[in-house]
Each structure stands twice: as structure tokens, then as C-alpha cells.
């Protein structure tokens, strides 16, 4: 069997195992989904009237504010659900089962690939769910073409992949599931200090660079451009650069941790 077929076959087996876990114990993923959905409802129905004052010169209505925050909420869904990947990787690494996998003649990377693909699929399913909630409470895109929808989906998938790799690295580096969940917290906090809920130019001046020079803001702006027809500018390539950078970083980090001698 060639290396590539071996890699594909073993990764497929590992993916099936991870999806079986997710199907058998959906509570972890569902719990993680609560945060973005709660925030969506909270910001739209409780804070919405005040928050929208900072948008469109203060004349935004509820529908406009929903449209404004949905791209950010979708991004937050990614940040939130990849925590599940960090937790399941950390749990896995503490089990004797991984030691067994390491002593078997299987493709070395299949354990990680199984986790990464499994996590991306879970994130995409979560995005569909959160997207459905958003549509249900009145989110509508402004004349986005099929191509723009496709591009938006592609960008969300790419960003999911990037954050998953980082989360997998965090899971590998953590001694246990609790530590993994803690160290992955920034992934859900970063969107709060991005342009997800309010435009960055309404933030205090000293804070603006923090909000602007991080992966969430350019990606959210690109999504807004694609779905709502706002200006994208150079955000699209900055976002893609972030995605590739984070993916490569997470990949190198995870694999070097995985290839270390286990304790």
C-alpha cells in the first residue's frame, strides 16, 4: 500500500472514530454552541437598541444590527466549537489508546488528521445551525450572488481549519482536558475584541490596533463585504494570510508535540 493510500485509509478510520464520539456524546459540541447563540440573542434583543446607535450614523434598526453582527457570530461559532477539538485531543493524549496507536504500523499523522478533519466537519455543522438561528430571527443577505455565498463559505471553512490546527496544538500542549479548555479560551474571547459587535473606529484609540491587527477582524469584514455588500478593501487577502499562517503554525506545533517521545 502506498504511503498516500495508507494515510488516507488510516485517517479515515480515525475520523470515523472521532465522529462516532461526537455522535455518541453530542453534549460537548452543543454546549459550545450555546455561547454564540446566546450572544446573538443577547446582543440583538437586549443590547441591540443601544448597540445599533454606533452603526450607520445611529439610524440602524434591528434588522440592520442583526445583519451587522451575524458574520461576527459565525466567526465566534468557529472560535467556540474548536475548543471541543482542544479538549478531545487533550483527553485522547492522556489515554493509553494513543500509545497503542503509536505501536501499530499505521500512518503516523492519521491520529491528528482524524481530529482536524473531524473538528472542521463539526464546526461546519455548527455554522449551519447558528446560521439557521440567524435566518430565523431575521438575518438576510443583501443581494449576495451564488459566487459570493460560495466565497463566504470557503472563507469560513478555511478559518475553521486554521483555528482547528491551533486548537489541536493547544490540546497537545495541555496536560489534561481542563487545561486544554482553559488555554483555548482566547479563541472565543478574541471575537469580542474584534469588529464583531461594534465597528473598530468606535473603540478607544489606543485599543484600535489590538482590534484591527488580529485574525478575526479582517475575516469578519470580508464576510460582511461578501454577504452584505460593504467594502472589502485589502481585508480579503489579509484574512487569507492569517488563515494560512495560523494553519502552518498550528500544524508545525501539533506535529512536533505529537512526535515527541511520550512520557
Amino acid at each position: 500500500m502506498s504511503t498516500l493510500t495508507l494515510a488516507a485509509r488510516d485517517s479515515g478510520t480515525m475520523l470515523r472514530r472521532n465522529l462516532l464520539h461526537a455522535r455518541r456524546y453530542p453534549s460537548l459540541t452543543l454546549n459550545l454552541l450555546l455561547t454564540p447563540i446566546m450572544l446573538l440573542l443577547l446582543f440583538v434583543y437586549i443590547f441591540g437598541d443601544v448597540m445599533s446607535a454606533g452603526i450607520a450614523g445611529g439610524h440602524a434598526d434591528r434588522a440592520q444590527y442583526i445583519a451587522y453582527i451575524v458574520p461576527g457570530i459565525l466567526m465566534m461559532t468557529i472560535g467556540s466549537t474548536v475548543i471541543g477539538a482542544a479538549v478531545s485531543v487533550a483527553t485522547d493524549m492522556n489515554e493509553g489508546l494513543i500509545a497503542r496507536f503509536r505501536t501499530m504500523a499505521i500512518h503516523r499523522g492519521s491520529v491528528i488528521i482524524g481530529h482536524v478533519v473531524g473538528s472542521v466537519l463539526q464546526v461546519l455543522a455548527s455554522l449551519v445551525l447558528v446560521g439557521a438561528v440567524a435566518v430565523a430571527i431575521g438575518f438576510r443577505s443583501h443581494d449576495a450572488t451564488a459566487l459570493e455565498w460560495l466565497a463566504a463559505l470557503g472563507l469560513l471553512a478555511l478559518f475553521s481549519l486554521a483555528l482547528t490546527w491551533i486548537a489541536v496544538g493547544m490540546g497537545m500542549a495541555s496536560p489534561n482536558a481542563e487545561a486544554a479548555s482553559n488555554s483555548a479560551m482566547p479563541l472565543i474571547l478574541l471575537p469580542l475584541i474584534s469588529s464583531a459587535f461594534i465597528p473598530t473606529d468606535t473603540m478607544p484609540g489606543w485599543f484600535r490596533p489590538i482590534a484591527e491587527y488580529q485574525p478575526f477582524t479582517p475575516t469578519i469584514e470580508t464576510l460582511r463585504g461578501l454577504l452584505l455588500g460593504t467594502g472589502i478593501g485589502n481585508n480579503w487577502w489579509i484574512s487569507i494570510l492569517w488563515c494560512f499562517g495560523l494553519s502552518v503554525l498550528g500544524y508545525r506545533w501539533s506535529t512536533s508535540l505529537f512526535n515527541r517521545d511520550p512520557k
Binding site: R17, L20, H21, R24, Y25, E95, G96, L97, A99, R100, T103
Partner: peptide
């Protein structure tokens, strides 16, 4: 190999 700590997947 059967290690000292059980190498089974408890979730399935």
C-alpha cells in the same frame, strides 16, 4: 502491545 494503562476507547 498491551501497556500498563488500559489502551481501550472508553467512549465506544
Amino acid at each position: 502491545v498491551t501497556g500498563q494503562f488500559s489502551a481501550v476507547d472508553g467512549l465506544i
